[in-house]
Design a protein around this nucleic acid. Sequence first.
DNA 1: TCTGGGGTCCTAGGACCC
DNA 2: TCTGGGGTCCTAGGACCC
Length: 429
Amino acid sequence: MAEARRFALVDCNNFYASCEKLFAPTLAGRPVVVLSNNDGCVVARSAEAKAIGIAMGVPWFKIAATAESQGVVALSSNYALYADMSNRVVEVLSAFTPDLEVYSIDESFLDLSGFRHLDLVTYACQIRKRVARWVGLPVCVGIGPTKTLAKLANHFAKKRPSFEGVCDLMSLDEPTLAHLFSETPVDEVWGVGRRIATRLSEMGIETVEALRRSDPVWIREQFSVVLSRTVRELNGASCLSLEAVTPPKQQIMASRSFGSLVFDVEDLREALAHHVSRAAEKLRFQGDEAGALTVMIRTNAFKPAEPQYQRTVTLPLATPTSDTLHLIAVAHRILDDIFRPGFAYHKAGIMLSELRPTTAQQANLFGLPPQDARRQAAMLAMDEINRKWGRGTVRASAAGHRAGWQMRRDRLSPAYTTSWSDLPTALAL
DNA sequence: TCTGGGGTCCTAGGACCC
DNA sequence: TCTGGGGTCCTAGGACCC
């Protein structure tokens, strides 16, 4: 039998809120929340904000008055800052193992199977210390023989102070594990969301321990192969491997709620052109072209009393392309088809799908070149300029400048680390 | 006034084929 | 008892993740 693997999950604590605190000493000790786009919902909370009971995902407008009277500082999402800090963390982690999977903006899996000869708790403490010292962010480390258990271990490392930020499940004996698992609700398991947790609970499975003890074959019949795999992983059988290389995306989406309601088709045209521009740029960076484009427009579903309208239409492209201008034209053609006047539009978006590598392109039936070479060169030049001088330096005129649809970010902090003009100033007194 | 955005995978069911 | 059976492709929808 193969020797058990060792996975670690390194997760930044309260990542967005921690990034904000790092560059704003005035926030020290204060409850801080970070809001989603359009300053909509709470998507991150500092320890102080959690302590006063602010829930994850709650709409800010519902709690703003109370929260502000409690001294809560709310900030808009500053993705430029978070992405840059995330890269710094990954850079530090990379020195600890060559086998690393960047799972999300604030989490990475490390394969530590080759480090069995070391005391992994000590190793993980070194990881924590170095990230804190070199980047300035707090992280917790969970270790286990499978990714699912490493995730769970990370949860214990975060929630149980006795672990001091590092939990290696493989260093615990079986009775301790069983005790820990029987105190933990089943929805803490990676892959068990609200729906499945409810159904499991109806079957009498309420804790991690109960799920671990259930029969994977029965689980497969009742639920799916996915959940039965989770059960096996909870029992130490590694089913999910480390994905060191990010597979290319199969679809690229770009959508946004509007900063205020939109009635005018011209605003929708601009918003769609803007979304297409962003998605097409990602598409070209990935070296792909798209074989289909989807346009979505919708009114506000949270206002059932208002007239509702929603359409999503996908158009296959005769010739796959990554040309922003061509894709904008297609998006506008779809919009002309589905737009209905008289509705208060709340959100619009696009999706590029049936992606394939640009090199695989073929001439179409009529023998025309698949893409005007000069246009392609223009796209690449545009990307180069935008990479060098900042996003949006050169853009399609159709993406325009009307204010009606732009999102709100009234509480944005400076781009401390990615913009010269936003560099923080330190004073030595 | 005000409720995010971007992804993946799996399943079920229908159409179609031999 | 048993009304053929099994494969593929596609789509829509559901579930999950951060």
